[in-house]
Computed example of a mutant assay.
Amino acid sequence: MILSAPIYRLKRNARLLAREQRIPLHAALDRVAHREGYSSWSLLAARAARPAAGLSARLNAGDLVLLGARPGQGKTLLGLELAIEAMKAGRRAFFFSLEYNERDVIDRFRALGTNPSLDADLFVFDGSDGICADHIIARLADAPRGTLAVIDYLQLLDQKRTNPELAVQVAALKSFADRRGLTIAVLSQIDRAYDPAEKPFPDAADIRLPNPLDLTLFDRMCFLNAGRIHLGETGRS
């Protein structure tokens, strides 16, 4: 769910608006929802219960997206939820991971209430040791426009010395996504120095980058913390 503020704060804003404008609370809630881009509060609340649905609706063909969070904050689950949203829409989804095996992914799908075996034609898991930009591009060579690919995770692409530099790989992925009309979501580690007491969400400055990378290659950056999702400034802004 991509909102300008948490749900509880939006509700508080609605209550203040209702008092200031002397209007019913339900009308104030709807006004707040309109400001967030939703036709009604009920729709906003429904989407809030399905965070991946809200994020998926904001993504476009050709987007290269970074999903960043500290360990245990749900970035892998969010990536899999995005894959589920793609499959619900009849689009193919690929999950490339150097961290998880196929059993891990199946278990997480089941925890999300989805049986991946029912979507064998739409979902592809790749846990090859050779995952890098060239490998991913080769696997997606015949993927139709609108396909979603999730890469778990950014820093592991840079692990093998035989792979091209991370900046070269990310540039290749962005060019490929643009050319083929695919959406590529890249999970990313956040630096241990990030302190949630100082700011509620990480941002681009907190992305762990052992080697230089032009972050403007990413069209969107999404950060997670404490069960909430924030769509940060885009790399190209």
Rank of each mutant, 00 (worst) to 15 (best):
131 I>A: 06
95 F>K: 00
145 R>G: 11
166 L>C: 11
141 A>M: 03
132 C>I: 04
134 D>L: 11
145 R>C: 13
197 A>I: 10
136 I>G: 03
88 K>M: 05
187 L>H: 06
163 N>P: 08
111 A>S: 13
189 Q>E: 10
173 L>Q: 00
116 P>M: 00
144 P>N: 02
91 R>G: 10
196 P>G: 12
117 S>R: 14
188 S>N: 03
113 G>A: 05
188 S>W: 03
154 L>G: 01
174 K>F: 07
134 D>T: 13
122 L>E: 03
144 P>F: 01
147 T>L: 01
170 V>H: 07
104 D>V: 02
131 I>G: 06
181 G>W: 05
96 F>T: 08
108 R>Y: 09
102 E>D: 13
143 A>S: 10
112 L>C: 03
133 A>F: 01
90 G>W: 03
197 A>L: 14
107 D>L: 15
94 F>S: 04
193 A>S: 15
189 Q>R: 08
143 A>M: 00
174 K>V: 05
92 R>L: 06
141 A>L: 04
142 D>I: 03
120 A>D: 10
118 L>S: 12
114 T>H: 08
140 L>W: 02
138 A>C: 10
119 D>V: 12
95 F>S: 00
164 P>L: 08
113 G>K: 02
149 A>W: 01
155 Q>M: 07
193 A>C: 11
177 A>Y: 03
134 D>S: 15
164 P>W: 08
156 L>A: 10
139 R>P: 04
183 T>V: 13
146 G>P: 06
189 Q>A: 09
186 V>Y: 05
171 A>G: 15
109 F>K: 03
127 G>D: 13
196 P>D: 12
187 L>P: 05
163 N>G: 06
157 L>V: 09
150 V>N: 03
98 L>M: 14
137 I>Y: 08
